[in-house]
């Protein structure tokens, strides 16, 4: 188990270097970063001076090593717009996103588990087809559109819920639903298919032969097994949430890392974008590591080997 974690950790580090390299060299391909940082009326001398101070006149591989060395010291450059270290900026916004992700995941699971389980149990019936339609609608509905629709109905028309920014618990309702819905369709289909597989297994037959009620068979014997693939893919789903947070946070003016990413893009704040992408990758890898440990907890076959 410990070896397994160490192994995953090393894999993670390797991936991280890869991400950093891609981000770094892509950035160099799109032009000299110094041009983005200079005011429009800067003289060629100013430009040359900046390039020298930033080390941009050295060979790429040398620049990359410096970049990595700095990164290891927790320095990923400075945001052009905020004139603050990008890392500090990221971590000041991260808690706001983290406050959004668990309730969004909870919303997604609360909708996807019953939908997935019921459509598997009643496969081929009207209920199954109805759930399928909901899933397709969920997939086809753009996140920003749902967010705007919810704001229009519940904030503008009914005036029940706030439409933007952080605040009390009522501020969480619309962004959480918007972000959670992003995952429902995918989760539901996954749960449905793994549930179908589990329902077909021998141990389910044995559970019925024992005289267990169908309720016990489905929720006690099947659900945990059916959730194993969900957990294996939980990293993917959480990563999707981090991505989905960009749109949701933008629509709801939620000051998290999603909105920070959006700002970095529209303000062409390249150092910030670079830092945000790398730190997002760190976050996703960290999530995956935690998920692997949790996975081993749920599936005893992994825990003991």
């Amino acid at each position: 188990m410990q070896r397994y974690i160490v192994q995953r950790f090393v894999q993670g580090l390797f991936l991280l270097v890869l991400v950093a390299a891609v981000v770094f060299f892509l950035g160099r391909l799109t032009g000299n970063p110094a041009d983005l940082m200079l005011p429009e009326d800067a003289t060629p001398e100013d430009r040359a001076a900046l390039i020298r101070t930033l080390g941009l006149d050295r060979p790429y591989h040398e620049q990359f090593l410096i970049f990595i060395a700095n990164a290891l010291r927790g320095d990923l450059g400075e945001s052009i717009r905020y004139r603050r270290p990008a890392v500090a900026l990221f971590f000041s916004r991260l808690p706001n996103t983290l406050k959004l992700v668990p309730p969004a995941m909870a919303v997604a699971l609360a909708m996807a588990i019953p939908l997935g389980v019921l459509s598997a149990v009643y496969r081929g019936t009207l209920l199954d087809r109805l759930a399928g339609v909901i899933a397709v609608l969920g997939l086809a509905t753009p996140n920003f559109w749902l967010g705007i629709l919810l704001i229009y109905i519940f904030s503008v028309q009914l005036g029940w819920l706030p439409s933007a920014r952080m605040g009390g618990i009522r501020h969480y309702i619309l962004p959480t639903i918007t972000l959670g819905t992003f995952l429902v369709a995918g989760l539901m289909r996954l749960i449905r298919s793994s549930m179908l597989e589990v329902l077909d297994s021998e141990f389910v037959k044995l559970a019925r032969i024992k005289g267990l009620s169908e309720t016990a068979v489905i929720w006690r014997h099947c659900l945990r097994n059916a959730l194993i693939p969900v957990l294996t893919l939980a990293g993917v789903f959480l990563a999707a949430l981090v991505t989905g947070a960009i749109v949701t946070e933008t629509v709801f003016a939620w000051p998290g890392i999603g909105r920070l990413t959006f700002e970095a893009v529209i303000f062409r704040d390249y150092p910030l974008l670079q830092a945000v992408v790398i730190l997002d990758a760190v976050l996703v890898l960290f999530i995956n590591l935690v998920v692997d440990v949790l996975y081993a907890y749920i599936d005893p076959r992994i825990r003991y080997t």
């Binding site: 141990f203 044995l206 005289g211 009620s213 006690r220 097994n225």
Partner: peptide, 24 residues
């Protein structure tokens, strides 16, 4: 029927190797 299964008629399935729930 649920009161008959297990109490009056029990059955051992063809494949006892996969008859047990792996997570319980």
């Amino acid at each position: 029927m649920r009161r008959i299964r297990g109490r009056k008629i029990a059955m051992i399935l063809q494949d006892p190797q996969t008859s047990l729930n792996p997570v319980l």
